[in-house]
């Protein structure tokens, strides 16, 4: 085996995986707190890619040429707007259904997913959209034809997702807000009795998920340069798979699941067969769940009588 190919595939896998991980956070947090699979999350990620391109174009229009400031501003605006999306979707489509059957919000989410996809398609057109390449350059290890390379954007993806993870872990683990989140996750009724504003916390979780999706959206768009209204679907399913693989409801699990899924896909595709890459990922998922029914890092379910 050529080591440089293996190395390259691992880098490919890690980048892909950290994107899955970032999106998986949205699934896992929402699931953890209200036990609902938020099918519209993939499309929130898709919307964030559009918002990013639009913001970038507006910033460019106002003549800010420094790539660094433009990116920083774009990131901030995209995160804010996408967060708003998360908030409004929860407010409009899920909150009225709280306390009803478990599957009602699921169907509502599917409706929102269709709505977002088609709304963006109608208003922005069905064409593939893109942004110019902002960050170029790679770091190469090795010489001649046999090298392992990592693009600056890929470095940025890895660093940013690690930073997001760290920030989020601190937010959930170390702050008062995080404590409230965990309280609501464990027992919503009890938390409400103890004075936690559960509605606000649930909204917050949706916002956090959407913001993470926005980070992913910005990074992915920087890396691949193009997107269309359909990207949310495939990526959404993959990220969701990642969330389950890691143990749905667990934050580090989402990241771990994402990385593992990315690596598996990349290595299988690179060394075995691209056609059956997704079959393999799903087979691994099924296998893991059969032997460890609550995912890799998920808390085992306690059967209460």
């Amino acid at each position: 085996m050529d080591w440089h190919i293996l190395g390259q595939q691992i880098i490919n896998g890690l980048t892909l995986g950290s994107i899955y991980g970032l999106i998986a956070i949205g699934y896992t947090m929402v699931y953890g707190i209200i036990g609902m699979i938020n099918f519209a999350h993939g499309d929130v990620y898709m919307v964030s890619a559009y918002l990013m391109a639009i913001t970038l174009a507006v910033i460019h229009f106002f003549g800010i040429d420094s790539v660094f400031f433009a990116l920083l501003l774009t990131l901030a605006v995209t995160m804010a707007l996408t967060g708003l999306y998360g908030w409004s979707i929860e407010r409009v489509a899920y909150r009225p259904l709280r306390g009803s059957t478990r599957l009602a919000p699921l169907i509502s989410a599917i409706g929102i997913s269709l709505l977002l996809q088609n709304y963006v398609q109608i208003s922005q057109g069905a064409r593939v959209q893109g942004i110019p390449t902002l960050i170029e350059g790679t770091i190469r290890f090795g010489s001649g034809e046999d090298f392992v390379q990592i693009k600056y954007v890929q470095v940025l993806i890895l660093v940013a997702s690690l930073a997001c993870m760290a920030g989020l872990s601190w937010l959930i683990g170390g702050t008062n807000l995080g404590r409230q989140c965990r309280a609501v996750q464990q027992d919503r009724k009890m938390a409400a009795i103890l004075g936690v504003n559960t509605d606000r916390i649930i909204s917050l979780v949706f916002v956090i998920g959407a913001v993470m999706a926005a980070v992913a959206g910005v990074l992915v768009t920087l890396n691949y340069g193009s997107f269309d209204f359909y990207v949310g679907f495939v990526t959404g399913i993959k990220a969701f798979t990642a969330a389950v693989l890691g143990g749905i409801g667990s934050l580090p699990g989402a990241m771990l699941g994402g990385l593992i899924l990315g690596l598996l896909e990349s290595l299988f595709s690179g060394f075995v067969n691209t056609d059956y890459k997704d079959v393999f990922s799903f087979a691994v998922l099924v296998g893991v769940l059969i032997f460890k029914p609550s995912g890799l890092l998920g808390r085992p379910e306690v059967e209460k009588v």
């Binding site: 050529d2 190919i5 980048t15 892909l16 691949y224 990526t235 990349s266 290595l267 595709s269 890459k277």
Partner: peptide, 20 residues
Amino acid sequence: YEGLTRGEKDFNALATKIKA
């Protein structure tokens, strides 16, 4: 001779394979 999945955007693994 390989097939990729429509709707995806990341083909880095495939690209590495083609190169190899």
